Amino acid sequence: MRCPYCSGPDTQVKDSRPSDDAAAIRRRRVCPDCGGRFTTFERVQLRELTVLKRSGKRVPFDRDKLQRSIGVALRKRPVAPDRIERLVSGITRQLESSGEAEITSETIGEAVMEGLKGLDDVAYVRFASVYKNFREASDFKALLGTLGDAAILPVEDESAAEIVPLRPKRIPRPHS
């Protein structure tokens, strides 16, 4: 493996151990040329997957892109990083074990939505709004209806649902 610092052609493995979720091997490496140290992760890949996009274009499956997309949907949400990693690994394993060498982007999107629905409702709605290209509020309303009654908080008083902007009170200045 090339050194990321000096691009030296050979690096030495100093330490190997399973990662936290045991789905990858974490390797600590050192470059004999510059002395730089870095970490790599080795994962099992059952098969090379190709993604068929809506435009008809074919691109190689990118696990990192999947992880970034899920990360964007989960930004600032109280979800542990190991749960995110398990979701990404589960979706990747599901796609690789499907038996197909070519998968549609719709299949990946549906798998992500299904995983996010069980993980975090807000992230599910965020991802769905981009994935399904929502154009108006009624699209959100229809999606929220699929989450069930627990996801929608009841409003006891209709007037409480109205949003009223707050304005600072004007305090009269004393005249001198």
Rank of each mutant, 00 (worst) to 15 (best):
L166Q: 13
A142V: 10
V30L: 00
L49F: 02
S105A: 14
A128E: 12
A24K: 06
C3I: 05
I25N: 06
A160T: 14
C6K: 03
R2M: 12
P165V: 08
R47V: 14
L87A: 14
L87T: 11
D139M: 02
R170Y: 10
S129I: 05
L66I: 11
I103F: 08
Y131H: 14
R63Y: 10
S105F: 02
L46V: 15
V164F: 12
D139V: 01
L52T: 04
D15N: 01
F61E: 09
V59M: 07
L144K: 15
R43C: 03
V30D: 00
E106S: 06
L119G: 07
Q67E: 15
A142S: 12
I171W: 11
Y5V: 06
M113I: 06
L144V: 09
S69K: 07
C3S: 12
L52S: 04
I171S: 11
P165R: 14
L143G: 02
Q94S: 12
R173W: 09
V130M: 12
P32S: 07
D62T: 11
L52R: 14
M1T: 03
L143N: 03
A128L: 13
A142W: 02
K53F: 12
K14R: 04
A150N: 09
P32N: 06
D21L: 07
V51A: 09
S176T: 13
G56C: 09
P4C: 13
S97P: 03
V72P: 00
E100Q: 14
G8P: 05
R77N: 07
Q94M: 04
R93K: 15
G99I: 11
R68N: 02
G99W: 08
D149N: 10
M1V: 03
R86C: 01
A23P: 00
A101L: 04
S19F: 09
D20L: 08
R75V: 13
R83H: 11
E158T: 02
R26Y: 01
R37M: 03
R77A: 09
A150C: 02
V155R: 09
R68E: 07
P4Q: 07
R126G: 02
K117F: 14
A22E: 14
V30C: 00
P9D: 08
K169E: 08
P174L: 14
E114W: 06
G109C: 01
L153G: 12
F61D: 12
A111K: 09
M113P: 08
K65M: 08
I91M: 05
P4M: 10
R58P: 04
V112L: 03
R29S: 00
V72C: 00
K141M: 10
T107F: 04
A150Y: 05
R27G: 00
T40F: 00
G71R: 02
A151S: 07
V155N: 07
A160F: 13
R29T: 00
F134Q: 09
G35W: 04
K117H: 15
G71F: 01
G99R: 03
E96R: 06
S159N: 13
V51D: 05
T40M: 01
F61T: 10
E96D: 04
F41Y: 15
P78Y: 03
L74A: 03
E42S: 03
P60W: 11
L66P: 02
T146F: 01
K65H: 13
P9W: 00
A128N: 10
G36L: 05
D82Q: 12
V13C: 00
A101R: 12
R43A: 02
I171C: 06
D64M: 07
R83M: 03
R75D: 14
R83Y: 04
P4N: 07
A111V: 09
I103D: 06
L153M: 13
A150M: 05
